[in-house]
Design a binder for these strands. Structure first.
Lengths: 211, 211
DNA sequence: ACGCTCCCATACGGAACGGTATGGATGCCG
DNA sequence: CGGCATCCATACCGTTCCGTATGGGAGCGT
């Protein structure tokens, strides 16, 4: 052993971690696996499709497993909501952190990331959660928390671009309302150059120096 | 009788009309009554809440009545979709028809009408239908048809204001995406002057002469 | 009074779903 | 080897749905 002791220890730890990962992802399930699958269903069928037996069938187990990891269906919904909030908070600080001087570019990046064409699944989850919030005060509280953080971060980008306060507040609200709203619309009957129009709209929101 | 003949006839016709109205609205139901109630449920619980027995309970009848007026649940959904399209088409021509010279004012009116604060029920139906469209191609086709008409009418207003073509196309897309998206957001944690910000956003969309 | 149509109530079967109880398989640990 | 904890399968109950079959009441014409 000697000099290879630490390497051996790392190798063993990797083996253990691999074994643990396989166990968690194939043979045995945990809360995270159920919640992960729940997001898939959430994107496809909305919160109304989040049924215990449906998830169990997708995971190829029975609901006996579900009620081991979760107290009841509400416990799953709480876990999904918590996981959504955590992932959104992480995503916000990641998407709205810009190097000095690149704030405007970062604003365009945010509009692009939330575009409905790419990242389709993420937007479907976003819409499903917000529809969920219409019928649950607890979900509405989380959405309010996420929206507040998102708007504040985006506003700081506008402020860094030299936009005054009220204007920056309005523009970041317009930005997020647009990206959510455009994903609800079906515009391909209006113009065959929708992408060009969307690029123009991004200029209206971010720059707004057009005539 | 004599001179009172016509009065008597009118009285009888009123009685018959009242009787008919009572029959339609209380004792007996028709397709329109079920569809009307379906829109109430659609606003509250979304399309997933549109269950036959739930509607029957709300109308204080049994589903024996439902299956007299409708072939099955899909028949109701088709009726709801058709009624939504018709009402939207009527509303579009009503909301986007402006006297010459008042086109800009009419654009502000459209933004105001679709505001989430007032007309809350109408917006909930709008969102429910669009979420429905995510999982049904037939609904998506109707939404596409409505969106196309809406955008074309709104674009004509921008064009009448002297906005060039591509700019007008972009602005009307931005307008509708904003009004739908803002109704999905919960901004009251971001600012305590949300209404003032929304008024500013309306200027950004309609005028957009700000710095 | 009779039949006829319209409209709805009742009863039933079947499926999907939430939740509980219980047993069984596996692995770990002394 | 035996005891224990972990994790899941099975069986079951109650509820809520959709859809159908059938009967019945009210109006209405003859």
């Amino acid at each position: 052993m000697g000099a290879y002791g630490s390497v051996w220890k790392r190798f063993v730890s990797i083996l253990l971690r691999m074994d643990d990962t396989v166990r968690k992802s194939r043979v045995q399930l945990d809360r995270a696996s159920w919640i992960e699958q729940a997001f898939e269903v959430l994107a496809e069928d909305g919160v109304a499709g989040l049924r215990v037996e449906v998830l169990a069938k997708r995971l190829k187990v029975t609901k006996g497993s579900f009620y081991w990891h979760f107290k009841d269906r509400q416990d799953l919904l709480d876990g999904v909501l918590e996981a959504w909030r955590d992932s959104r908070v992480r995503d916000i600080v990641k998407q709205t952190r810009a190097r000095p001087g690149e704030e405007l570019q970062q604003l365009y990046h945010v509009i692009d990331v939330y575009s409905a064409s790419r990242n389709r699944k993420g937007m479907l989850i976003e819409l499903a959660v917000r529809e969920w919030a219409k019928r649950s005060n607890a979900v509405a509280d989380v959405v309010r928390e996420v929206d507040t953080k998102r708007l504040e971060h985006a506003r700081s980008l506008f402020l860094a671009c030299g936009v005054p306060m009220e204007e920056a507040s309005s523009r970041c609200m317009l930005l997020y309302a647009y990206v959510f709203g455009i994903s609800l619309m079906i515009c391909d009957g209006f113009s065959n150059e929708v992408d060009a129009l969307k690029a123009h709209i991004a200029d209206l929101i971010a720059k707004a120096k057009e005539t």
